[in-house]
Structures are given as structure tokens and as C-alpha cells.
Design a protein around this nucleic acid. Structure first.
Lengths: 260, 260
DNA sequence: GCGCCGGTTTCGGTGACCGGAACGCGGCGC
DNA sequence: GCGCCGCGTTCCGGTCACCGAAACCGGCGC
């Protein structure tokens, strides 16, 4: 990096991979946490470890592009980012194809319905139909959760390359609740079972009081595309019914699919 | 631009604003049309007007970032773009707040429901609840339409700064159907009426056979946030009912809003 | 075989990019 | 009022990240 012989000014760990302009742009854009609506220039400089001058220049350019917007000399992510994100094919076609069935599941069960894909070594939620105003819940649209403690995650694991499972087991399994499975052999066994019965379950392994049931979704060519799940408070969960509804959806999607 | 004394190789008009790395990245990312799932490197070079070498290098970096993915030596937009787009506050908070009411409208009317915001001089659709498998329709999530021929557009125009209306009228009004209003004075009059009655209408001005009704949405501080609309085939449209349902939603949102 | 068209790598010249320094401004404490 | 601090913004000279031409590699069709 030019003229950067000085020690990193602020908390290290940030600022990695800022060799190129794109790396800097990435740091800036990803400096926006999910919740904070807007961030000041100096704050951005602090979070990214990039000099204020440079942040200013790049932010100017991102502004003109529409990836950032500003209100009152604070920055926030701009609509162009939303537009771009909506074009992502792996997201758009899957959501458009599955949404009607998610509604069907929702009206049928009156519980929360998720659509998720495998991304890296995590579940990434593409869509969520929740019931009620504010369900105390870990999941969010575009949020991530570990593979080993979610129903969608187990479904995805079961039908992905074994390498993925190996990679997951290569590092310790994070514990989210007392019920979270952290013993590798137990997880392997569960994943095997999932392949046997065709659906995956999770019981208070992510959040106390909630359990989920999931099925995988496949494209016409047989590739794994994602997974749908139903999440319900344990006390009123009717898992057998969920399994029936989910497998029905899976079948319908496999039959008349508009999935490449 | 360094070493670029040569005339622009391919169709001009593209390649604008490619002075900087970010400009190039922008060209590359926006080279992906809504529908084409994946694009080859050479095709990207052609569309952007950037040399194949440079596209290759930048694409590599975007790949590592996750903004692009590749299958089989073709590129497509990546999940990172989706995640970024989902964080855009002007999108996320509005959608989360309005979605329940959109469902309510949908079950009530059995017709297509839209949520839109003003962006630049166009309507930008944030969310769409459609009925049936494939409604022949212009609108898409993250799609854009002109302000002057959509119900949401008129609603937004009516409650925005007058400058916006002036800017729209500064250029000729595009005609989408025979019913599209292209006479400035007529549009001005309609917008005035919208402010009077509190809702906006559009009748086969965007697509023959369809008409829409819309209301604006305001935050607690009184700023215009967006607009919701109901779109129905003309022959069965019950506009009075839509107006009632929409104004109810508008009131409910204004009362117990979670909008900043 | 040979030409063609994709993706990838090499390489030297240079201008886009960098951050320090300086500036103008508004808010706060003294 | 005055000085101080932190903010956003502008200027500027040094330099390295970035650029595209050219060469390279592999598959395909003729």
C-alpha cells in the first residue's frame, strides 16, 4: 500500500485485504452493520482503518453510483445495492418459485416458514414468513446461522458434498443452547438419518422453546438448490403435520418446477 | 486512463465513467441484465468496453468478495450482493413494517399489491404480492416504472417536493399505452386532485386491461416514505373498495407506526 | 494441420490513487 | 468570548497499483 509504512492506527483485524480499491470499497460497504441506519464519515474511517481522506473520496464515488446515500452528512446503504441484490439469480429464481408454496405452508400451519440456501459453511435465509408482529427469533431475511443447529442446515448438509460436512466438523461446533449438538459423531449420525427419511429436524438447538422441520429442494437436474422449513414453539408443534406439508411441497416443486 | 489513446473499441455510450476502478466495477456489476443468469468473461468485456484482461482481474477480486460467483467459467451475481441489498435501511424497515398490511390487503382484495418508493425520477418497487402463477404485468420487485403513468408514482409525486414534478415534466412524458397521460397540464391537474382526495389512480395507463389505486405512506415525522397500491384487471376492479382498504392501511400505519 | 475463440498469464510504463497537512465550520466547556 | 475538539472537505506531491498489448494455452470445427 502506498505511503503506508506506519503501524495500523486502530484496532487491527479490520483493515485486512485493503490492498486494492475494491478491497477498500468492500470494507466501507460492509462496515454498515445490519441495524445502524446511518454512519458518519469519521466512524467509517475508524471501522475500516482507512484514512478519512480516502473514505471520503470513495464514498463520493459510491454516492454517485447509488450504492450509498447520505442524509445530513451521514451515510447509509443506497437503493442501488438493493436493486443489485434483487438480481442475484440464485436468490431471485428460487424465491419466486418457492414463495407461493411458502404461503401455502404458512396458512396451513400458522407458523413461521423459512427459505434458505447453503452459502459457505452457513445457512443463509432468503425469505421468511413470520406470524405475529415480532417473533423472538434468531433468523432474519439475509441473516446467517450455523449449519449444525438448524433444520434447514441439516437438510442442506445431508444432500451436499461430504466435504461440506467434513469442513463443518473440522472446527468445534458452536453451542447456542444446551440442546445444541456439539459432538461430531452425533451430528454425522443425524445427517445419515436425514438422508434416510428425507427430512431434517431440530429441537431447541438454536433457541429455547422453538423447534423446526425442513426438507431440501432440488432442481430438475437433481442439484440441491435450498431448503424450506417450518418453525414453531415446541409446546404446540405438530411435527408430523409439518413433515407431511413439507414433503408435499417438495414433491410439487420437483414435479412442475420452474427451477433450472 | 492509462495507455488508452485508442478509440473506444465497441459501441460507445457504454464505457462512460470508467475512469476509476470503482467505475469499472460498477460497469461490470451492472452489465448483468435482470434475466441473464450468467455471462462469460468475453461477453462482459464486450458489454462494458473494458479490456478482457482488466475484467478478468476485477472479476477475480469480486469473486473473492462474493459479489460474483462462477459456474463453469461463467459469471453471475453472488450472494454477497443479496446480503448487502437486504441491509439497505430505506428498503428493509419499510418492507418489514408494511408487509403485514400488504398481506391483509391481498387477502381482502385477492388482487396484486405493490409497495414502492420514489427513487430518482422513477418508482422503484420494493415488494409485490401477486395472485396466480404469472400475472402478465410490467412490475417486478426491484423493477422501475415511470412516475406519471403509475398509481404509486402519482401518489409519490403528489406529496414530494414540487421540484420532482417539475423535473418529470421537463422531459417529454413517455407513452406506454394509448391511455397514458402525456400532456403536462393534465398531469399537474391530476396530481393536485390526488392531494385533495388523498389517494391516486391510474387506468390502463401502464398496461391495457389493468388499473391501480394507491395511497402514500408517511413516517411519524411526516416525511414521505413510500406508497402502496392495489392493481386489478379493469373489468373486475372495485376501486371504491380498494380506496377504503388502502386508506385504512395508511391510517393504521400512521397511528402505530414503527417507522422512524 | 490450422485458424478461431474463449480464458489466463506476463510485463513494463504511467497516471490514478494515496494519506499528510491544512482549512472552515459548528458545538461545547471554561 | 475564546480556545479546543471533532467533524467534513480540499490541496498536493510521491509512488505503486493498475492498465492493456501481447503472448500463451486449450478446446473445437473445418
Amino acid at each position: 500500500m502506498p505511503g503506508m509504512g506506519h503501524p495500523r492506527p486502530y484496532g487491527d483485524g479490520l483493515g485486512r485485504g485493503a490492498g486494492s480499491v475494491l478491497g477498500k470499497a468492500r470494507l466501507i460497504l460492509e462496515a454498515f452493520e445490519i441495524d445502524d441506519a446511518q454512519v458518519s464519515l469519521s466512524e467509517l474511517a475508524r471501522r475500516t482503518g482507512i484514512s478519512k481522506t480516502t473514505v471520503h473520496r470513495l464514498a463520493q464515488e459510491l454516492l454517485e453510483w447509488g450504492m450509498l446515500e447520505r442524509s445530513d452528512s451521514d451515510y447509509r446503504l443506497g437503493m442501488r445495492a438493493f436493486e443489485l441484490g434483487s438480481r442475484v439469480p440464485r436468490f431471485r429464481v428460487l424465491r419466486d418459485a418457492v414463495r407461493p408454496y411458502m404461503h401455502q405452508l404458512h396458512t396451513l400451519t400458522k407458523e413461521t416458514v423459512h427459505l434458505a440456501v447453503l452459502d459457505g459453511l452457513e445457512v443463509l435465509f432468503l425469505e421468511k414468513l413470520a406470524v405475529g408482529p415480532r417473533v423472538a427469533h434468531q433468523s432474519r431475511i439475509a441473516g446467517r446461522l450455523p449449519l449444525h443447529c438448524t433444520a434447514t442446515g441439516k437438510a442442506l448438509l445431508a444432500y451436499s458434498s461430504p466435504d461440506v460436512l467434513d469442513a463443518v466438523l473440522a472446527r468445534p461446533l458452536e453451542r447456542l443452547t444446551p440442546m445444541t449438538i456439539v459432538v461430531p459423531s452425533l451430528l454425522r449420525e443425524q445427517i445419515r438419518k436425514v438422508r434416510e427419511v428425507g427430512h431434517a429436524r431440530e429441537s431447541e438447538e438454536t433457541a429455547i422453546g422453538y423447534c423446526s422441520t425442513a426438507v431440501p429442494l432440488f432442481g430438475s437436474s437433481g442439484v440441491l438448490l435450498g431448503a424450506v422449513s417450518v418453525t414453531a414453539p415446541t409446546f404446540r408443534a405438530d411435527v408430523a403435520r409439518y413433515v407431511r406439508a413439507l414433503t408435499a411441497v417438495r414433491r410439487e416443486l420437483a414435479a412442475g418446477d420452474h427451477l433450472n
